[in-house]
């Protein structure tokens, strides 16, 4: 295994495309090092992207924020402005692992690890976040939900990597929230999760919504039927029940050591309801 720490995007792309064997990109490393330790991957090349320009900063852009690929979740959590605009995204990112893991883990890493249970991803999908993909060619912007294609798999081509994630501007009376279910209070992988992002009209009715679910399908699900279930509502009980039902119906989870199909289908609906209530309150809604 070689370890390289390129100083430019072009150099990183060159290293990655030039490697004949297996390569891995290293930002926070909290997934990569676990895989190395377990012998799950034995890369010939590890490219540390933390020296690339801009990857360690959070920059305001077009009313939203551009989050560099090497921004740790701890650093993200300390950014009051991002937290104010996208509280659900930040709380999702901040739920990953321990305080120690927070000091290293990144949202981009969480996305590229492509676990269906990744905490940040449902929140990013609900937020309509966009990933900037660099590589041998020109940079391109790709909606976050298009990146993972299945457990451990992404759409990124050989030599490509993500340099930042863009969180867009928000209309007034907007907010998001993320909830996951874990057996303990910390340190677990989500058994099911739900992110809700919504915008209210002046009457406190939901004018726009996006609902994304984690750990209930091979990739994070963006569930339009769930969003529709609460559109126009003030989150009255029938709307919440319809939301939960839509989420449970959309879920196609598996039985595994962390939970059963039945449990995941039930709980993902519960989480969506609860997340919707939080987002609604954050957006200024009175329920």
């Amino acid at each position: 295994m070689r370890y390289e720490k390129p100083q430019t995007v072009a150099e990183a792309a060159r290293l990655l495309t030039g490697e004949k064997g297996l390569s891995r990109i290293l930002a926070g490393g909290t997934d990569v090092l676990v895989q190395l330790k377990a012998g799950l991957v034995e890369p010939d090349l590890v490219v540390d992207i933390k020296a690339l320009p801009g990857v360690r900063s959070i920059v305001a852009e077009a009313g939203g924020f551009r989050i560099g690929a090497a921004v740790s979740n701890a650093q993200l959590g300390e950014d009051k402005a991002v937290r104010a605009l996208w509280p659900g995204v930040v709380e999702a990112a901040n739920l990953i692992g321990s305080t120690q893991v927070q000091g290293r883990a990144t949202m981009v890493g969480n996305l590229c690890n492509a676990s269906p249970a990744a905490d940040a991803v449902p929140a990013l999908v609900a937020a309509g976040a966009v990933a900037r993909v660099a590589g041998p060619g020109a940079a391109r912007d790709v909606p976050v939900e298009k990146i993972p294609t299945g457990p451990g798999k992404t759409k990124l081509k050989r030599g490509e990597f993500i340099t930042s994630i863009f969180l867009p501007a928000r209309p007034p009376r907007s907010a998001d929230a993320y909830l996951r279910f874990i057996p303990r209070t910390e340190m677990d992988i989500a058994v099911a999760s739900a992110a809700v992002s919504l915008t209210l009209d002046e009457d406190g009715r939901i004018a726009a919504a996006r609902v994304a679910l984690g750990a209930v399908a091979p990739t994070v699900l963006l569930v339009e039927a769930a969003a529709k279930a609460i559109l126009g509502s003030r989150l009255e009980d029938p709307a919440l029940e319809a939301l939960a039902a839509a989420c449970s119906a959309a879920a196609s989870p598996i039985d595994d050591k962390r939970g059963t199909v039945e449990f995941r289908k039930d709980v993902v609906g519960v989480l969506a309801k609860r997340a919707a209530r939080i987002a609604y309150t954050r957006a200024g809604g009175q329920s």
Binding site: P183, R184, T185, E186, M187, D188, I189, K257
Partner: peptide, 23 residues
Amino acid sequence: IYGADGRLLNAGFLDYRIPVASD
């Protein structure tokens, strides 16, 4: 937790869940 193949599925502190301080 054993799989149908008799292999241990949770040989680590991630999925063998001992109590943490916040529990």
